[in-house]
Design a protein around this nucleic acid. Sequence first.
DNA 1: ATAAACGATGACATTAATGTCAGGGTCAAG
DNA 2: CTTGACCCTGACATTAATGTCATCGTTTAT
Lengths: 131, 131
Amino acid sequence: MKIGQLSKLTGASIRSIRYYEAQGLITPKRSDNGYREYHNLAVEQIRTIQFYLSLGLSTEQIASFLHCVLKNKEAFCRDVLPVYTSKLAEIEQQIQTLTQMKSNLEERIRSIRSEESIYKEATYHVDKTSQ
Amino acid sequence: MKIGQLSKLTGASIRSIRYYEAQGLITPKRSDNGYREYHNLAVEQIRTIQFYLSLGLSTEQIASFLHCVLKNKEAFCRDVLPVYTSKLAEIEQQIQTLTQMKSNLEERIRSIRSEESIYKEATYHVDKTSQ
DNA sequence: ATAAACGATGACATTAATGTCAGGGTCAAG
DNA sequence: CTTGACCCTGACATTAATGTCATCGTTTAT
């Protein structure tokens, strides 16, 4: 099949499919006219790529084990596990950073609210615009 | 003072200080030779900017209330609160997304580990490389 | 044969803050 | 007067995946 149909079947944009190819994630044959020609299996391959992308993996990480995953069941591909665990650690670090930012923000908000109520009391008589 | 000293006093790179200026966050005078000339207050201003950046705010968000924060105490600047709360919502959304990715990854890892142990049992006799 | 629909390539844009380089001025100490 | 340390501006690079053009060739249906 040609790239347009593959795009429709998978939901991946034509641009994205070409990008995956540029990243070495999929390698279609070429017809005589230069058009990319995909087997039916490519549908599943694109879906697999999208699945890993949705897990937050980069195309580079996916490339590191895709050759294996495409030929075996994921469970039998040892290469997947270290990528998963290192990605997991990365995500946990990001969550931690965001959680810290969140606490800081909440603290700022609390602090402002409490000081603002004091401010409102103290200036109630001149602060007629504050409502 | 000139930009080099300001950089040393604040830890912000010269490049970053110029960038803050381009974003309208700080506006130094210019000497006759064209050098940026900062008051002593600029040290505190840069630190303030860095503080807000560390909260995860963008320079654009900071710009939206900095004029106020620099002249008043934060608590008296009403403009800060909505920026804080919208940033907080944004961060919470990011945390939620990451948490979902984390669960998915953990599930994948669990699934692989359990299947792998089955695999190892079933193929133990041919799998001498697996430790 | 022509127009519409499709495919190809290549390039630029997006985002945000920062690094880094090039090609210059300025200034102070020697 | 030269050297080194500093400053200036402008520009390109970084990251990742995708969108969106422009320009061109191909195919298909009328």
